[in-house]
């Protein structure tokens, strides 16, 4: 067992891999992650010359292309910090780096392909175990923790009803997340709770939400839009039925999927929902007293500023 305080100290400086979505449509996630890091005194060292992790698309051409892409990101992250920990807030990136790590540790064929492409590309082959990938949730939970957030936020989110939505890539498939499902204190793949814990520590009221790990149809958001709209509508309606005012997200694909299909559901199926959609980092930022513009809340498609003003959160 690693000493918890020692680990917390180590993680105060991590390599940061934003990924393509956070530079584009999910920019609010990037801005708010950096803003809370600054506020909390945590250091983010950007991974140099990173590339796309392969997202959900590349594996359908061939899964090993994704393994290579993610392994290159990991090789860029090695030595970016002393502890070789890379933090990826995007669920897709996080999932792919974890998957590459697992495949490289367990599958000779993956190792051979990655070695071959890396040699041609002219860089050192990444070897399993050289870096550790964590999610933004792990990062806040392990460095600041619930106690730290309680002290810093003084329950600022009190009275805010939140449905925490984790999505698919953070928990499935189970085998690529060996640190999850390890009993008390660890994350659960069937009922994840890290986001619930952090937001509750900031004073929010988490509503009962059975669709925490339901799928938003993000992979087919454009190629099979009606399917995605139906899946998103399920999530939005379930959140509202359970009294949520806000859905907290931790993935740019889920986030923009919920936002886009909330509008599309109204246009196409005449089903209007009013629940607002915010990144959990934006909510934590508000709890820490950071202004909504500094958290990129105005760049979200889902309009939530008037609501936040009404709640006295800005």
């Amino acid at each position: 067992m690693v000493d918890v305080t020692e680990r917390a100290k180590q993680l105060r400086e991590v390599a940061y891999y934003p990924g393509c979505a956070l530079e584009g449509s999910g920019n609010g996630y990037d801005v708010s992650t950096r803003a809370i890091a600054h506020n909390l005194g945590l250091k983010l060292r950007d991974v140099k010359d990173w590339n796309c992790c392969g997202a959900m698309e590349v594996k359908n051409i061939d899964p090993k292309i994704q393994t290579y892409l993610s392994s290159r990101v990991l090789s860029q992250a090695v030595n970016a910090t002393r502890n070789n920990v890379v933090m990826a807030p995007c669920n897709g990136c996080y999932h792919n780096l974890k998957k590459a790590e697992y495949d490289l540790a367990h599958d000779q064929n993956s190792r051979d392909v990655v070695e071959k492409i890396s040699a041609k590309a002219g860089h050192k082959t990444y070897e399993a175990g050289q870096a550790e990938t964590i999610h933004a949730l792990d990062w806040i939970k392990e460095t600041i923790g619930e106690e730290g957030l309680r002290e810093r936020t003084k329950g600022k989110l009190a009275g805010l009803k939140i449905a925490n939505y984790y999505g698919c890539m953070y928990v499935r498939p189970r085998h690529i997340f060996p640190e999850k499902d390890q009993g008390p204190g660890s994350e659960s793949t069937s009922k994840p709770h890290f986001m619930d814990d952090l937001l509750a520590a900031a004073g929010a009221e988490n509503v009962e939400f059975p669709l925490k790990t339901a799928c938003c149809g993000g992979a087919h958001t454009l190629s099979d839009s009606d399917m995605s709209t139906k899946l998103v509508l399920n999530i939005l309606q379930a959140a509202e039925a359970n009294g949520a005012e806000v859905i907290a997200t931790e993935c740019p694909t889920c986030h923009s999927g919920l936002e886009m299909h909330q509008i599309r559901a109204e246009k196409r199926f005449g089903k209007k929902t009013n629940v607002r959609i915010l990144y959990f980092t934006q909510l934590l930022g508000l709890a820490l007293g950071i202004g909504p513009r500094k958290l990129g809340i105005h760049t979200n498609i889902s309009e939530s500023i008037p609501f936040l003003v009404e709640k006295g959160l800005t």
């Binding site: 393509c20 979505a21 530079e23 449509s25 590339n51 698309e57 359908n60 051409i61 292309i65 892409l69």
Partner: peptide, 28 residues
């Protein structure tokens, strides 16, 4: 449509190393 999307995506990565959302959307 899904395969077309995956190909556009992969092409952009092979060419640039990264993805630009708007471009993927427009090309698709």
């Amino acid at each position: 449509p899904s395969m077309i999307f995956d190909k556009i995506f992969t092409e952009q990565i092979v060419e640039h190393g990264r993805i630009e959302d708007t471009k993927v959307l427009m090309q698709f």
